[in-house]
Design a protein around this nucleic acid. Structure first.
Lengths: 142, 142
DNA sequence: CTGCCACTTCAAGTCCACTTGAGGTCAAGA
DNA sequence: TCTTGACCTCAAGTGGACTTGAAGTGGCAG
């Protein structure tokens, strides 16, 4: 078994075929050829899709992901400085998320009728909103 | 100075007036009255906006935020069970983000020409994509 | 009192990441 | 050979979160 057709990639990756076609159109993945009309994919594509999924989880747009590791060809190497910068940004995001999580946890436990009256809650909200240069927000997956 | 007009809230919160009107329309904030046509806001609204910002950072939709602390009136109390569940979901998201961050950091440092050939990188990608029930994705802010 | 212009409303437009639908093709099983 | 139906393309639609534009209003400096 050398190549998968789109239905097989869809099943194994959990993504609908329409999304795979869209990703190909955007240069995020490539099919290795066709059988008649039908796209053929290397098993490798599943790892690439995993990588894309991870990047999406971290809030990168498809365009950013394409820039980061879209077409491995024609590029000297991924811009390492950019990767490090993105990692730093993610650190900031993570810290905010931790604060939000703590706020949620506290709000679930604290008996104050209005959370904004609770000094602890207010401190947590401040933590979640300061830590200035947030560039990313979270998106939902299904 | 008891009340802010929309331009002042916009300036202090960093959000455009159009977004504030939109948030009001969606029930996330309230103006406390009008001077002529113009909305007046209590200084309090800034804290609420901070809370909304924190929630948005964590990937909650405006509708979810409205449910969580939209109109404080008419609701016995925020659903504490839901808050705890959201906190748990955030924990999962945070773990994925940490894995993505580590992957980025590693990719920035690792000399392998193709990262997918590096076993360490592949392990990190797996960590970022497993931990199954992710419901949230990150969104970008400006 | 007048005029400016920051504010107002409402409808429509934008961006992203896909999804859906119509209409077409062709590999493979009966 | 014929039929089936999974796959194809391309255009248009969707949803969330706003933004933009046109047309109107009214507080306040002069």
């Amino acid at each position: 078994m050398r190549a998968f057709d789109i239905a097989e990639v869809a099943e194994r990756s959990g993504l609908p075929a329409s999304a795979l076609r869209y990703y190909e159109e955007k240069g995020l993945i490539q099919s290795i050829g066709r059988r008649g009309l039908r796209r053929l994919f290397e098993p490798q594509v599943l790892e690439r899709l995993a990588l894309i999924g991870a990047g999406r989880t971290a809030g990168f747009s498809l365009e950013e992901l394409a820039r980061m590791f879209g077409s491995t060809e024609g590029r000297p190497s991924v811009d390492r400085q950019m990767l490090a910068t993105k990692a730093d940004e993610l650190d900031v995001t993570i810290r905010k998320l931790e604060a939000v999580r703590d706020g949620l946890r506290h709000a679930a436990a604290c008996p104050a009728s209005s959370h904004m009256e609770c000094p602890k809650f207010r401190r947590i909200v401040r933590a979640a909103t300061s830590a200035a240069p947030l560039r990313r927000r979270l998106r939902r997956s299904l």
